[in-house]
Design a protein around this nucleic acid. Sequence first.
DNA 1: TTGTAGGCGTTATCAG
DNA 2: CTGATAACGCCTACAA
Lengths: 342, 342
Amino acid sequence: MSQVSIVDIARLAQVSPSTVSRALQGHPRISAERRAAILALAEELGYRPSQVARSLVTGRSHTLGVVVSDVTDPFVAEVLKGAEMAARDAGYRLLFAMSNRNPAQEIEAAEALLDYEVDGLIVISSRAPDRYARLPRLRDVGNDHRIPVVLLNHAQVSEFIYSVKMDSESGARMAVSYLSQLGHRRIAFISGPSGGRSSSERLAGYRRAVLEHGLDASPELVIGGAGLLEDGWETLAVLLALKPPPTAVLCYNDLSAIGLLAAAAQMGVPVPDALSVVGYDNIPLSAYTTPPLTTVEQPKEAMGRTAVKVCLRALAGEPATTTVLSGQLVVRSSAAAPPRAQ
Amino acid sequence: MSQVSIVDIARLAQVSPSTVSRALQGHPRISAERRAAILALAEELGYRPSQVARSLVTGRSHTLGVVVSDVTDPFVAEVLKGAEMAARDAGYRLLFAMSNRNPAQEIEAAEALLDYEVDGLIVISSRAPDRYARLPRLRDVGNDHRIPVVLLNHAQVSEFIYSVKMDSESGARMAVSYLSQLGHRRIAFISGPSGGRSSSERLAGYRRAVLEHGLDASPELVIGGAGLLEDGWETLAVLLALKPPPTAVLCYNDLSAIGLLAAAAQMGVPVPDALSVVGYDNIPLSAYTTPPLTTVEQPKEAMGRTAVKVCLRALAGEPATTTVLSGQLVVRSSAAAPPRAQ
DNA sequence: TTGTAGGCGTTATCAG
DNA sequence: CTGATAACGCCTACAA
């Protein structure tokens, strides 16, 4: 080990290891000179405390586990970015794992992160939200050492399982209301991953707005998807095949909206003249599509930051709460009045 | 601690902790019955070994540090994904940190990860490649415990600092040759982050192809950028302001190409009829732009996987090598013959 | 085949 | 204010 440890410093400073430890962590009861000497020595030797040794004795790893469905999804990446920044600001690090959108793999990943004694767990886009309450190491109560779990865009599932989410229902509702005001009466919805909380909430918001505005509520207007580029691409054909085709579509997310835009361009369907398209998420790329995408903003970085804050707050024993952030409609040019309304 | 440890099992199984330890790690010299009994007990109690305790004694954390410039960059995310998968397959986990494209922050992050005793370090898009050889804990040789560092898209900087890269020069050259064959003579290049290895290599490839094909080599054709969406967007104006505007552009990456496409659509410049655009990276979204982007494929996931393989190989003491992967041109429809050639 | 003892680097609890 | 001493959970000679 060429790695300098606390005892090396102790030896050189002619003091005991405990004194060094105290000096290093700014313990009050220690003479100023000693502290200075020790600090200088540590600096000089390039000493860096071993986090793993520290964890072993303190029971805190200063590490948060993050399991994401797929980093490649711009929404996920943006949330992760926010989480990383907040974690770093708080002196925490992130242990990262991917579930590939697979529930079994998600739980496996979570357990693996738990093996590393992460102090908390953040799950971005869970596909198995209700399994966390049953994880052995999360289940046992009566322990002040309960590991907090923060789920993104899911309702709070139980005690010690928190949630940071956007009000997806009202987001979708806003989008549909906007389209309705533009004059659309027959609006389709391309849904997201089935079973997903955010997908069902957005669908609920869509349905609610459809009712409120007395729009066409045919069930055929709700089309299955999974929030991928391919979904939007493939869905255009089914939209056009509808009896009277819808004049507007709300997509589960920007990715599927972009896929739809591409298909429309390819098939010569002018957007927004023949078809209005609205996305969800407001990923950076959505400002650079042709035409620029009208979409519902989700405060992605803020959600990531908030997730770690909630986690840390729970760790500190403070009464952490489930947080609901709100989004807003970003109007660009992929939606306009429907053809016949002109 | 409601957490079960090796001694809990030992107590219940009426054996010593070391026996349990041996049974758990499949040590050869142990009676089959005992092993079975212990394994069953461990299973039943939901025992999971503490990775931190294990690390402390073995000196291996089974953790790799990954510092990325920005997860939000699709190229980076894709590489990270590959790395995560390969790491998981090998029983490793990733400790994640972001540099926000800032050299100081990058080194700080690397050091922080080192504090957690990561077994290796992978840097995706380094902005400070030459500082790794000087990091105290990486510098001291004569130690069989040297921590391997793998840099993405950088040449090998020194011993124990490896590199996994694509041959960026030939990639750029391919792209320019293709444009030349299409009939373009005046081709611009939007560069990437200055000082970046991949940017200078792509520029070199561009220059080489320009020479080889006797194309217009005016220096004004090389325009500064940073590989962001905004760069492409802002660059269109400067391209159009050029004496005779170029008929084609090679962009540092798909992101800037997409920005350029958006600007062109907005300003009514038809692509590829008036201007051919070629990107670099082949991010998933590049297939869904209008028009679909012709670009140079980088094997992103493979690069990530390879990075962890190289790292693990170095850890195993095998003679790890710097790896160069090759890409290929993906022809879609954003490039065509120039206007006057028709 | 199994148990005992020592130690990995730190922190924390006691005495002094 | 400072120094022993004992953990933290696990692994690994060395002994038996």
